[in-house]
Design a protein around this nucleic acid. Structure first.
Length: 510
RNA sequence: GGGGCCGUAGCUCAGUGGUUAGAGCAGGGGACUCAUAAUCCCUGGGUCGUGGGUUCGAUCCCCACCGGCCCUACCA
């Protein structure tokens, strides 16, 4: 039995979920669904990050307690994921007792291993930002954001001895060239380590909205330290339900490129410090850009992007869940930045979904209804379409296995194109009733059946619908893809259903 | 200041040290009529950002520059 553990970052609850969150989460979801389809025992974790100064501030600003604020905002994330058909197995909140327990166990271990020490943090502080800057990061001693002079501040902090892991991290990177992908992100992380690592402050005394340091109750852990450990909380690290041995060796983090440092440098070092192997794999994704600009809360606040237009829930209301999932997965190569636009959604929808897939199902259904009394004929063992199907199956499989949903869908759509072309060549609408006609339609239906299996990680609900329309019982997810995605297995038990268009075209002016 | 990324057909992007640089979409032409004015076939001379260098030969290697962007230690 293979296992597969995939995580998203836990999302920071100082604001509402937006498309950027959805992008990451839907990719993780599709990959998780693929692995379930392969028969892997799969665990898909997402959740919310609920500590830190910004959350406390956001709560205060809204006149509620931090706990109430996080309850409220965390719920919005779960609602968004429900709206997107996200099949997480576990939703973690960093304010949960289980997380307190794991964090304290984990960091106590690091402490006992001698990698945490107390020192005075002294740095340049910007009162407006309420944050420290290094001299290098500052604008010649002035705040790079506000331009006002930074003041020297001191605070007693506990420090993590990150510098002790420079060599071990470099060795680890050398020994694990697939640790981070895509390769450019691996290089980036590797280069950063080579550039030298400094110890980092991991606790705060200035706030109390956080997880207490077990050996020093004046301190709470800095939010990132607590946050990263969520990946271990969910598999029971340090608790009765400890399943770290089973899940950690097959762990995969899907993260945005801006948090490479935390996941590819700090986090493996922290694991090493606790006597644990680092996460198995970090898959980095790029950003969705709106009009070439980063899609972010900041931009929206400045009026650069209308936040209401990029709420995931509004998008699914407008275009449907599966089309949005398809767009997010298909439009941008995972690892690259991508354009996000309503025009792009419409284009993908009309061409790939309405014209290619939806129309294929419609035209085949109509001919079967008209010429075969609505009963789907069986495919041939040997058919011209068979090669196209096998190529699509192989390419799609390979792509999903390496975190490349865009390539997977491209490969699957290759079979849709081949099937449309096959229909042109065989012109079943001209054929008299008989074996030839039945063979052509059976082959086309078989291709459609295979498509629904291959595409179900991306569009679970539409694929189920198509499955039923072509007269099959059960679901595309019944059985393992290795067994079911093989030419020749189409065997309907129900009549073909013509039905309404699966994807009514979106008119250009709407 | 330091580190890194990107710049390829109208658009979005693939791609490789070597004869004619590719795909999808858009556009143009044709076919067909089963289908959601859908589908299928044909159609892509674009200084591969600019200027140098290495090389028998570079879009792909090196350097500089221009333009866009990211990280520099709490925004997917």
């Amino acid at each position: 039995m293979n296992r597969f553990y995939v995580t998203t970052p836990i999302y920071y609850v100082n604001d509402a979920p937006h498309v950027g969150h959805a992008y990451c989460t839907v990719n993780a979801d599709a990959v998780a669904r693929w692995h379930r389809l392969r028969g892997d025992e799969t665990k898909f974790l997402t959740g919310t990050d609920e500590h830190g100064q910004k959350v406390a501030d956001a709560a205060a600003k809204n006149g509620v307690s931090p706990q109430e604020w996080t309850d409220r905002t965390s719920l919005r994330f779960r609602e968004a994921w429900d709206a997107l058909d996200v099949s997480y197995d576990d939703f973690i909140r960093t304010t949960e007792p289980r997380h307190f327990e794991t964090v304290q166990k984990f960091l106590t271990q690091v402490y006992e291993n001698g990698y945490i020490y107390k020192d005075t943090y002294s740095g340049l502080y910007c009162v407006s930002c309420e944050d420290y800057f290094t001299l290098e990061a500052s604008d010649e001693g002035k705040c790079p954001v506000h331009g006002r002079p930074l003041t020297q501040m001191e605070e007693d902090n506990w420090f993590f001895r990150l510098s002790a892991f420079e060599d071990r991290l470099l060795e680890f990177y050398a020994a694990n060239p697939d640790f981070v992908s895509p390769e450019t992100k691996y290089n980036e992380a590797h280069a950063f380590i080579k550039g030298g690592l400094k110890d980092i402050s991991i606790t705060r005394t200035s706030i109390d909205w956080g997880i207490p340091v077990p050996w020093d109750d004046k301190h709470v852990f800095y939010v990132w330290y607590d946050a990263l450990i969520n990946y271990l909380t969910a598999i029971g690290y340090g608790r009765d339900d400890d399943e770290v041995q089973e899940w950690w060796p097959v762990s995969n983090h899907l993260v945005g490129k801006e948090i490479i440092r935390f996941h590819c440098v700090w986090w493996p070092a922290m694991c090493m410090a606790a006597g644990l192997d680092p996460v198995h794999h970090v898959q980095v994704h790029g950003w969705l850009l709106v009009g070439g600009q980063k899609l972010s809360k900041t931009m929206a606040a400045e009026g650069g992007v209308r936040l209401t237009d990029i709420s995931p829930v509004l998008l699914t209301d407008e275009y449907g869940v599966d089309p949005i999932r398809y767009y997010l997965l298909r439009e941008t190569a995972l690892g690259n930045d991508g354009d996000f636009s309503l025009e792009g959604i419409t284009a993908r929808y009309n061409t790939d979904l309405a014209n290619n897939l939806g129309n294929l199902v419609a035209r085949v259904s109509t001919i079967v209804a008209g010429k075969c009394d609505g009963v789907g004929p069986l495919p041939q063992a040997e058919a011209p379409l068979r090669d196209a199907a096998q190529r699509a199956i192989a390419d799609t499989t390979e792509a999903w296995n390496r975190f490349a949903p865009h390539h997977a869908l491209e490969a699957t759509w290759g079979l849709i194109g081949a099937t449309n072309a096959y229909l042109e060549n065989t012109a079943p609408w001209k054929l008299p009733a008989g074996d030839e006609l039945r063979a052509v339609l059976g082959n086309a239906l078989e291709a459609i059946r295979i498509v629904t299996i291959l595409a179900t990680p991306a569009m679970p609900s539409i694929c189920q619908q198509i499955w039923e329309r072509i007269g099959l019982t059960g679901s595309p997810t019944d059985g393992l893809v290795g067994d079911t995605a093989q030419w020749g297995l189409y065997q309907p038990t129900n009549p073909i259903v013509k039905g309404e268009p699966l994807f009514p075209r979106i008119k250009a002016d709407s």
